[in-house]
Structures are given as C-alpha cells and as structure tokens.
Design a protein around this nucleic acid. Structure first.
Lengths: 241, 241
DNA sequence: CGCAAGTTCTGATCTGGATCATCCCATGGA
DNA sequence: TCCATGGGATGATCCAGATCAGAACTTGCG
C-alpha cells in the first residue's frame, strides 16, 4: 500500500478520481487506493470473464480494452490513457465484459469497488464525480457508435486522431505531436476497419500534408483540415466538462 | 404529482429503479418521481443540447435516442422500452447529448437528478442499483460497438431481433412474437445499414423460415438459427444480472 | 371513402473498403 | 553483426452493401 506516491502528489489528480474530492477529504481516497507494480507491454490487467472487484485508474502508460466474441472475433472497445478509469463496465454483471491489455509499460492504481462505493455514500462530491465519470463513458460510447455507424474510413481516422490529440492536451501534453502506443491493427479494429486501410490512410494524410508520421511518432500538421474531414466532434472519453 | 399510480403498484417495479430499494423505502422514491402526461408518436421528450435536470423512466411505449451531428447525419444510438432509463448520458455534461423521440404513444416518469443523487447518498442499495444500471449501459454500448465493428448486415439484424426478444421476455411478454415500434429506417440507422438492406434481410429471413413478418408484426420462428447467425450474444440493455 | 403522404419492397448498378499477396522495414535477441 | 520476427506499406482484385430508381403497400386525414 502506498508503494509509491499518494493521490495528493499525483500529477493526474486534476483528471482522475481526486477531482471529486475536497482537498481535506483526499486522504480517504488515498487510504483505499492500492498502487500496483507496473505491467509490461502485452500483459493483461484483467481478463474478460474475470470476477470484478476493483476499478483501475491508469497512472502511466496505456491499455486497450478488448471484447472477445464467441466465434473468436475481437473488438477493441477503447484505449485508456493516464488518468482514465477501467472496469466501470463490470459493475453490473460482477465480471469483466472485456479484457484490458497494456500497450506499453503501464502502471495502475487499484480501487476496491466496495470501498469506493462506501466513499460514494459518505461524500456527495465524490459520488457525483463518479457518476459523471460513468455518464461521460456512456456519452463517449454513443459518440463512437455514431462514428462507426455513419462515417467512412477517412472520417473515422481523422476523428480518432483528433480525439487522441484532445486527450493528450487534457493531460498537459502538446496536442499536435505524440506517439501512438497502439498498432495499426489496433486502430483499425477499434474503428471497424482493416490495418491495410489505416496504413493507406496514413499515407494519404501524409501526402495531403495533414500529418507527419514515422512509424508511431505522429505529428498533426493541419488540425483544421482534419476537423473538416472528421465532420463531427468526436467527444473524447477524457474530456472534462 | 402521483397523477397515476405509484412505484409500488407499477408493473415495472422489478425492472426499473425500485429494484434498488427495500420495500419499506420505496415511498422515498415515490416521493420524488413525477408522472408525466403521455407524449404521442414523433414527439420529443428532450432535445439534444437541452439542459439536463432529470432522468426519465419509460412507463409505457418506447422511444429512440438520436445523436445529430454537425453535418446533419443522425445516429439512432438506442431504443428505450418500458422500464428503461433515459438521460444517463447527460449527467456529466449537464446537457443531453442525444434527443429522445417517442416511437408511439408513450408515458414516462421523471426523476429530478438532484433528488435521485440525494437518495443515492442515503440508501446504499439504491446507489448500488443505480451504478449497476449505468454500468450495464456502458457494457451494452460496448457490445453494440462490437456488433457495428465486426459483424455483417445479416448478423447485425439477427442480433438485434434477438436482443429485442430478450428485452420483451424480461418484461413478462412473449419472446417470439412482438410488434416493432420503430421503422425499417430506424433499425437500419441504428445498425449502421440502410433501410433497403433491412428490407431485403427481412425478406430473406422470411424465405429461410426464420421469421414471419407483416409490416411491423414480427414472429420469430427459429430462434436457434437466428442465434447461430448472430454469432455473438448481443447483451441487451435491459438484461438484469 | 378516397386520396396523399409516408413506409416498405424490389431490382439494377456502383463503389469503398475488404481480402489476398507480397515486399519492406524496424527492433531486439543471440 | 546478423538474422528472425512482427509490424507496416502497397498493389490487384473482389464483393457486401450503398445508392439510385420505382412500384406496391399502409395509414391517416379531409
């Protein structure tokens, strides 16, 4: 417990669960948060079907969440960046409906759900923040649904890149230059496309002068055009109201 | 207020918010629920962008939720049947990210969110039920994402029909015979297809002896085959753990 | 009842992105 | 340093479902 750092010292306290807490109640969250040793690329944080007991907050690194169907097809339902919560979809059934896989070296905080719930009972502002977080996840999924239901490949990728950009900015990082921790195949799967299509689109965007990309190092050169292509505002998961 | 019936008498109390409450606390929910006069087909319960103040529970009838993008394209993000909640996606932003439109004559209960939150503070079982409801919504959206991302037209429609079937059964109705309150266009949009494709698939399913359909009166004749076609278990929104 | 407007069905054609097939490149381990 | 391996790029072809165009129902209203 408290292996490294406290919520109070955490650089993510303005994005993560501490947002819901007044400064002088923060210790109560710290009390129940368990810091885990980092997991490496490809390792599974929790597996689909595993019993649910805790939600996780990403401290550093990133993960993908993957839903595996009966017939073996996979859907990457999302990517989790630092400050984001994982496992909110498991509260109802009591088991995880998706697996979470690290995309790079990643460390997480574990928050036992029964403790979290108890805290939600005591502290209205924490409860409200947690509900807002769940609500944001629903709204974000709806927006992704619209992306998959109505947009072509070009629009989907543009929207995805802009969404990542916004999420990085919310983390205090530059919005126009970042590294993709996920493969082309992961992006493709997430957007309901194939890796070939993603590859071709990156090439196309590069030729159009919209981006610069070397393997996974990405630079957005013309965000206005990307916005115009995307057509819709792809509400990013991490956007704070 | 209490214009008609109370939660205690409501036939949906085993599906809806009362699930979270012990019998002797039910009056507290009743106290805050407002029953509204019915709205007719095509009327809007709340409009995208409108300020959020209440969640709604469907008492009778059904609605679709529609996300309208900047460029005018629409995505039907879901359908709400009796006993289901609407507006959970609006808690975070404080305004509705989708519009809710009645598909037939529909009546709803309105639950002011501040009162709901206060009740969640007082009554752990209610709070937990509400969180499970939000969690189910997230898991259900993820499952729909997998449907749009990985499945062909035939599989999507089969999964959709089975999902409706399961939801009707949960309401104590027969699972193999029901009426579609939404148009072919609504179904198509929801599944990321066109109405022509839906129409053709209904014809195909009929010829294959899987269904019987007269306009909107549907009968599922071979649910096993439909399941085989769907390939995945399309977790229905209303499935109670 | 009878007409108009909306909804559903069906056919013909087209096309965006999947699929299949290589090839190339970056990375890391022996 | 070299090779092995997984990721990424690119070309050729194909096809599921979109689009376009009407015809046939169904519904509701004057």
């Amino acid at each position: 417990m408290h292996a490294s750092g406290s919520c109070d010292q955490c650089s993510l306290k303005l994005l993560c669960l501490p947002v819901g807490l007044p400064e002088n109640d923060l210790w109560q969250l710290d009390e129940i948060v368990q810091r885990r040793r980092p997991i490496t690329k490809g390792q599974v944080l929790f597996r689909m079907g595993a019993p649910f007991a805790s939600v996780f907050a990403v401290r550093t690194g990133s993960l993908k969440t993957v839903l595996l169907s009966d017939d073996g097809t996979e859907q990457v339902t999302g990517f989790a960046l630092a400050g984001e919560l994982l496992g909110l979809d498991a509260i109802n059934e009591g088991e995880h409906p998706v697996s979470a896989v690290a995309l790079e070296s990643t460390s997480v905080c574990e928050i036992p759900f029964d403790k979290l719930d108890a805290l939600a009972g005591q502290l209205p502002s924490f409860r409200q923040h947690f509900m807002r977080t769940m609500s944001r996840e629903i709204a974000s999924d709806e927006s992704l649904l619209a992306l998959l239901g109505q947009r072509n490949a070009e629009q989907r990728l543009a929207a995805f890149l802009l969404s990542l950009s916004t999420r990085f900015r919310a983390r205090g990082l530059v919005a126009d230059r970042f590294s993709l921790s996920m493969s082309r195949a992961d992006i493709a799967n997430h957007l309901g496309l194939t890796q070939e299509t993603i590859s071709r689109l990156f090439t196309q965007f590069r030729k159009q002068g919209l981006i610069e990309i070397h393997t996974r190092d990405l630079r957005l050169l013309d965000m206005d055009s990307l916005h115009r292509i995307a057509g819709i505002r792809f509400v990013p998961l991490s956007q704070t109201a």
